[in-house]
Design a protein around this nucleic acid. Structure first.
Lengths: 121, 121
DNA sequence: TATATCGCTACTCAAACAGTAGCAAGGAGA
DNA sequence: TCTCCTTGCTACTGTTTGAGTAGCGATATA
């Protein structure tokens, strides 16, 4: 009933052992979690600004992600809205290389416009 | 009806613009996607080996993740099971620092054993 | 007082995930 | 050939998560 916020040491969706890396993957492996960290890295933003910048993510989900990220010490609320904490910035620094890499990855992919399913006999 | 496999250029869950970074975040922001890449980085594994190593992830989900990751060029099937492609290994190299960082992050977190909700007046 | 914005909550409906059972294909051994 | 085992799934059911929309209370501004 209570929403599960993944934390190392706690068994969560994706990890019964609570290993830090699995708790982190669980936290980030939810819709818009990575996106929010990415967007907040540029500047602090209000709730509605994040919503717009993240293609109208529903307030329900955004609110949940923000609570999770706050409770995990990655995001905090300042006077000018939500922003990354020092820890959050650290995480973003690790995340930063994904930006450039993703464009290389995009170029290397076959440019079909539909998602092909793996064909089976 | 057809399962959505996030690819840059395609509007997907989490990104109508199809920007590479958002497509990547969408791909990785699904349960066990990051975990599978992490586990496969050590060695190639069979379907059931991955399942066991990932705490009995349901075959339904594992199968979907493997198809998505395969179709995205990060994973392939060899004689000895599933393994990362060259691209997948590149991605893992970016992911590797998260391992150490997550343990630091875990130490810094308050050691409460329950997920507290943000209190509101 | 009206009005506008902000951070949400409440709802409904669809998609994703968990959990379990079991099947078809392939190989090893008798 | 006939078991017996492993592997890679598919099928099914029930729960959780997410999308999408409406709107409320609080605060600020005119």
């Amino acid at each position: 009933m209570t929403p599960q916020i993944p934390k190392p040491g706690n068994p969560v969706r994706g990890s019964k052992t609570g290993k830090p890396i699995m708790a982190l993957f669980d936290l980030l492996g939810r819709s818009w979690a990575l996106g929010v960290v990415w967007k907040l890295s540029r500047s602090s933003m209000t709730f509605r600004q994040i919503q717009e910048s993240c293609e109208k993510v529903s307030p329900t989900v955004l609110n949940r992600r923000l609570k999770e990220l706050t409770s995990s010490g990655l995001v905090e609320r300042g006077a000018s809205g939500y922003r990354l904490t020092a820890t959050g910035i650290e995480l973003f620094e690790l995340l930063k290389p994904f930006g450039i890499w993703s464009t290389k990855w995009a170029e290397g992919l076959p440019k079909d416009d539909r998602n092909e399913t793996v064909t089976r006999p």
